[in-house]
Design a protein around this nucleic acid. Sequence first.
DNA 1: ACGGATCCATCATTGGATCCAG
DNA 2: CTGGATCCAATGATGGATCCGT
Lengths: 224, 224
Amino acid sequence: MAEVGRRAPPRHEAELRVRAEALAGRTLGEIARALGRDARAAPGVRTKGRAGDLVERALGASAGSAAEPDFPSLGIELKTIPVDADGRVCESTFVCTIQLARIADESWADSWARRKLSRVLWVPVEADRPLADRRIARPLLWTPSPDEESALRSDYDEIASRIGLGAIADLTAHTGLYLQVRPKAAHGRARTSALGPDGEPLAVTPRGFYLRPTFTTLILSRYL
Amino acid sequence: MAEVGRRAPPRHEAELRVRAEALAGRTLGEIARALGRDARAAPGVRTKGRAGDLVERALGASAGSAAEPDFPSLGIELKTIPVDADGRVCESTFVCTIQLARIADESWADSWARRKLSRVLWVPVEADRPLADRRIARPLLWTPSPDEESALRSDYDEIASRIGLGAIADLTAHTGLYLQVRPKAAHGRARTSALGPDGEPLAVTPRGFYLRPTFTTLILSRYL
DNA sequence: ACGGATCCATCATTGGATCCAG
DNA sequence: CTGGATCCAATGATGGATCCGT
């Protein structure tokens, strides 16, 4: 039985492709209405994340978790990506949170980051206008090319090794050509456990992996 | 600054006593109104826990946690206890959750259970009528007598030792003269970590310590 | 332009206890 | 009667990302 306001999960990739294509050209307001939901924001309330939530529901994605992609049975992750009127990427893309205390023991091959990025349905959504008026562009189902994956792994290895050495405090968003590390938290007081240079536990701001706009621009340009 | 709908914490025990005495004879509806809250339940919605929440707010108790009592600076725990029209205890009383994987290493002396029970403000509340109509009887500030504490420790030791042996699966609410073990969870699917006979991790239903009605009847009878 | 900080919705957990079948 | 199961409110953690000062 499908949850209210969410479509049933697609049974196979072809069904997901059809649903995704059907979103192209529609606004988030239209999509929300079809789901029996509301895409209007209360005054003074931000809408970060709501475009992603609406597209999830419209496509029948599960709520998502660190361990599983949005379409578990298909092995596909869903990402909305903000673009301007000319289709240019406006923002970086969050990939997943980093388990700072464990990443030293995890290679790229079995990392959450790689699993999240191994197959992604990109859904470009217009930015810079009221949520309900944002129009969806043509979605793209993507798997990293060998070159792309190699570049991501290179960034990952450098970042993971620096965290593994206990240098998280010195690691900024400057590191990484395509994949970078940035804070990921509800507010500045949030803390998670990391390990310092001598293996001692350290309470630090939670971090996540993000894809730089230069990288996602490359991906979307496959259509241009 | 006091939170909306909650009094400021009492500064000393005498202040708490005065506030508690002032509740005697009043209904939860009156108390809720004085706090700017509503003691009426929506149709079909249960009210488990709401009497406790209202009395907490009226007395200026903090939200409470496993590590701290409701009045941290006074070392006092607050418990509402349901009684019938004749003042007889209707239900068992939840004490605290059990850390199944750690209790083997904790004696009664430094247990959460003992800390929670070392000093308790009991607030009897009428049961068996709509929440807003329930009247509060005379509160009682209690510390276990040597005999009472000895009895509680005896129950605790037996329970803790059986859990320490990995026999949690065989431990029922039948064990314990005054202190017993019962499930404590939001629903039947909840699981927490325990240790089996060979020290292996085991996912089991979370449990809590409860005081049997026979024990709390003894306590309240100090007034009779 | 972009690195660091933050914001909303939803789900899980915890503290407050009571419900109810046998 | 009472042991096992459950229920609500509030808080914390997580996944969805965007905001904004320099």
